[in-house]
Amino acid sequence: MVPWYSAFIVGGILCLIGQLVMDLTKAQITPGHILVGYITSGAILSGLGLYQPLVEIGGAGATIPLSGFGHLLTQGTLKAVEQKGLLGAFSGGIEAAAAGITAAVIFGYIAAVIFNPKG
């Protein structure tokens, strides 16, 4: 098991990088850009075999940031390719991410039914 302070430091640093990108680049970076950037970089780093070591050190500190979600997609795809070949490239990513996406949609919809935006 990964100790909590490792998760704190790795997760904190990953967020800090995002903050630096937001504050120091000239173009206007919206949360959407940050999310896309993280999932893409996570997926690519994972493909290069560079993300798994970070998960070993940081645990949730590496899997909870959205780059971890990208890592999950890539690893799911790679594993499925090993088993099913080309079909795996089509199905593996979404299978691996299914729990998270469905949770977000279900909870999102329920929240929309229950709550009103307060602004």
């Binding site: 997760g11 904190g12 990953l14 967020c15 800090l16 990088i17 995002g18 903050q19 990108v21 937001m22 504050d23 949360p31 959407g32 940050i34 999310l35 993280y38 909870i64 940031p65 959205l66 780059s67 971890g68 979600f69 998270g100 949770a103 977000a104 949609v105 909870f107 999102g108 919809y109 929240a111 929309a112 039914v113 709550f115 009103n116 935006p117």
Partner: peptide, 23 residues
């Protein structure tokens, strides 16, 4: 800022906020 955007909670927030907003 990024501290609440980068974690998966930020992703969930984006989904829930959009869903609520257009209720």
């Amino acid at each position: 800022g990024a501290g609440s955007i980068v974690p998966i909670t930020g992703f969930a927030n984006a989904i829930v906020a959009s869903a609520m907003e257009f209720k």
